[in-house]
């Protein structure tokens, strides 16, 4: 058993970077200048990762407006529609509209990852960079389907594309986060959950890249069995949001690698180190193999200054514990 630290999903887009995006959107600066600024802020984020000694991390997704915006970097056929609430958050994403067969975009995500790797090399950061993609259930249910008569076919096509995307990525990164908050969304029908395994088999076929399944927000306990049966390497649980349900969750940890979302990214209140340690020891007692601790959900929901403070807490948990692997 080892305890590692991790960061998932997005880091709050700094206000000054948003100003750069606004200037780009109103055509006052060109794409190259925008990219230069994105690299500058990503580098800042990586410096924080280095300072806190985080072992598994993303690039903070600063390039994309939101998690769903990221999918446009590996899919080229969908278009962007109006703003839609992201689950029960006061945060909005642009809904993809699928009006033709899903097609892979070969370059955008890969280019971003290559840029990240250059920055990491420059900053001499060891750890593991994770690519981020959106899971099939979440994607299919958060987009508007105007093309596929058969919904299953949409999920299959999407899963096949993910397989190809990950296959391209695995020459560059060792791990990928598959964000699947839709798995526990009450509005998602049961039959989709039951078929999830099929999609994840397609996604993982022939791949050696480490797959971290990430979900967040309220858990539906009657879906835990299906969740922990998916063919992935690490299972993510939003511990913060499901405090009262953990008794039902822990039994599924046996012999699994787990990611514990212990930093509340929907509240500015600071977590207590004791509480975090209790989550770790309960997971341990439940027979979890490797444990990674980090933020519970996307960090867009809290101010940057609070996110930094919370991230720094991670290091305190593992160093005092003396169990850093």
């Amino acid at each position: 058993m080892s305890i590692k630290t991790g960061l998932i999903g997005s880091y709050p887009r700094p206000v000054n970077l948003a100003k750069v995006f606004s200037r780009y959107n109103s055509k006052k600066i060109d794409k190259e200048k925008l990219n230069q600024e994105i690299r500058r802020y990503t580098e800042k984020f990586f410096s924080l990762v280095k300072e806190v000694n985080v072992e598994y991390f993303t690039d903070g997704l600063l390039r994309w407006d939101d998690l769903i915006d990221l999918t446009f970097s590996y899919l080229k056929s969908p278009t962007k529609d109006g703003l839609i609430r992201f689950y029960d958050n006061n945060f909005y994403y642009r809904r993809p509209v699928i009006s033709s067969k899903l097609e892979k975009d070969d370059s955008q995500l890969l280019e971003a990852i290559k840029e990240d790797l250059e920055l990491l090399k420059k900053l001499e950061i060891g750890g593991t960079l994770k690519a981020v993609v959106v899971g099939p259930i979440t994607y299919a249910t958060l987009s508007e389907n105007k093309y596929y008569n058969d919904f299953q076919k949409l999920l299959e096509d999407y899963s096949k594309i993910l397989n190809e995307v990950l296959s391209d990525l695995q020459s560059y990164v060792n791990a990928v986060e598959i964000h699947e908050p839709g798995f526990f969304d009450k509005n998602v029908k049961r039959d989709l959950i039951e078929r999830a395994n099929e999609y994840y088999e397609i996604i993982g076929k022939g791949l050696k890249i480490e797959k971290h399944l990430i979900s967040y927000f309220d858990i539906q306990v009657d879906r835990l069995k299906e969740y922990f049966n998916l063919p992935v390497d690490v299972y993510g649980v939003d511990v913060i949001e499901n405090r009262k349900k953990l008794g039902k969750v822990y039994p599924f940890f046996k012999d699994k690698n787990v990611y514990l979302g212990v930093l509340d990214t929907r509240n500015t209140k600071m977590e207590s180190i004791t509480t975090i340690k209790r989550f770790i020891s309960s997971s341990n007692e439940s027979g979890a193999k490797d444990i990674i601790i980090g933020n519970a959900s996307l960090m867009d929901f809290i101010p940057e200054i609070v996110a930094v403070r919370k991230i720094k807490l991670l290091n305190k948990v593992v160093s005092k514990d003396g169990k850093r692997a």
Binding site: P12, R13, V15, A18, K19, F21, S22, N25, D65, D66, L83, N90, F91, Y92, Y93, R94, T268, K269, D300, F301, I302, P303, E304, I305, V306
Partner: peptide
């Protein structure tokens, strides 16, 4: 108030604690 929080794209508001 700790700082601005994003609502979407480049839009923020000061969400109080």
């Amino acid at each position: 108030f700790y700082g601005p929080v994003r609502v979407w794209g480049t839009a923020y508001y000061r969400k109080p604690s």
